[in-house]
Amino acid sequence: MASFVPTSADTLEDQRLYTSARLVEVACLDCLAKVGVKKNSEHHTSIQWTAEARRHCPELSRRTGARDTFPACPRMIASIEAAVRDGQIPIGAEDGY
């Protein structure tokens, strides 16, 4: 059962564009995690993890307790930066997504 139901089919395409389009796979240089990355600009980064990738990341697994949300794994950030330097990740948005 769906909850907030769109009334237009175009909305489903928007959901796809904003969430899963243009994700480039980046493998961590330190562990077995692989994530989907999109960069709309130099400073912007969108990182989609999977449960499997998450299990591989020792850095994120270390966190427990209150106020335990970890902004990012520094090793993964470094891996993404390396991929950007290698030109593996196109930088730039397509009409806002």
Binding site: Y18, W49, A51
Partner: peptide
């Protein structure tokens, strides 16, 4: 869109929660 995808998990039956709703997602705004 990703936030709403996360929020959706509370409005579907537990059996209908899909990985995208709960998988880790990070976003740095420029």
């Amino acid at each position: 869109y990703q936030l709403r995808r996360w929020y959706e998990q509370y409005y579907v039956d537990r059996a209908d929660i899909v990985p995208e709703m709960v998988d880790r997602f990070e976003f740095e705004v420029d």
